[in-house]
């Protein structure tokens, strides 16, 4: 019965091929430092799941953002846990992605044939920082408000186009409801969409070229 069902599915989905292409791959002898990439991916997914839960109650408006988070923390069942994981997950994700970058640098894994993997990886590091920057404003508390105030001001110090950048980031000359709205949009749609796309390319490249081996004296 099960075998029949499996054969039916296999005929239509090509499970064997998928298995061969994704899971049943040879790899050089691994080492625990090689888990940092998958740990980053795990954190990305975890942030995605907890973030989706948070949007159920969160309201991106200056009048209600703070109160909606108070509500999540005090009144929603396990809201404190979901928010706590999301809060600490962001910190951990920045650390893990950064250490992953340093690891790849030290073992020089970005050299032929993995140059593009590295370039997309730098993009992922920047997008991760972008997630941190946009997400920090959302609780609309003193800390986040003033951090964004100073952060966008620094971005506005670019010569010539600084003022335009500042206006694009803030949605006007000052931090306002518009800023919160567009940081929210950036945090839950724009940057995650980019992240997911770049992660896809990054993973494809990792599979195509395989994990690099740990360099020995001859390399």
């Amino acid at each position: 019965m099960w075998r029949k069902l499996y054969a039916w599915l296999e005929d239509r989905l090509g499970l064997e091929e998928i298995y061969k292409a994704t899971l049943d791959r040879p790899e050089p002898k691994g080492n625990w430092w090689n888990t940092l990439g998958s740990a980053s991916l795990f954190l990305f997914l975890l942030q995605g799941v907890t973030g989706i839960f948070l949007t159920v109650y969160y309201t991106p408006s200056p009048d209600h953002a703070y109160d909606s988070i108070q509500y999540i923390m005090n009144d929603v069942a396990f809201g404190w846990l979901i928010r706590g994981i999301h809060h600490w997950g962001s910190t951990l994700m920045v650390i893990v992605v950064f250490v992953h970058m340093v690891r790849v640098f030290v073992t020089a894994s970005y050299k032929y044939p993995r140059e593009l993997t590295w370039i997309f990886g730098v993009g992922l590091l920047l997008l991760t920082l972008g997630m941190g920057f946009t997400g920090y404003l959302l609780p609309w508390n003193q800390r986040s408000y003033w951090a964004t105030e100073v952060g966008t001001r620094i971005a506005g110090s670019v010569p010539l186009i600084g003022d335009s950048i500042l206006r694009v980031l803030r949605g006007g000359p000052d931090l306002s409801a518009l800023t919160l709205q567009r940081f929210f949009s950036g945090h839950i749609w724009i940057i995650p969409a980019l992240l997911a796309a770049v992660i896809g390319v990054h993973l494809y490249l990792v599979m195509r070229h395989g994990e690099s081996h740990f360099p020995d004296k001859d390399d």
């Binding site: 994704t22 899971l23 040879p26 050089p28 002898k29 691994g30 090689n34 888990t35 740990a39």
Partner: peptide, 18 residues
């Protein structure tokens, strides 16, 4: 590669632990 391990289960096991 010839003297290495398999992605599944060797590497994935470590990834899962982490």
């Amino acid at each position: 590669l010839a003297h290495g391990e398999r992605f599944w289960p060797d590497s994935l096991y470590k990834d899962a632990v982490v």
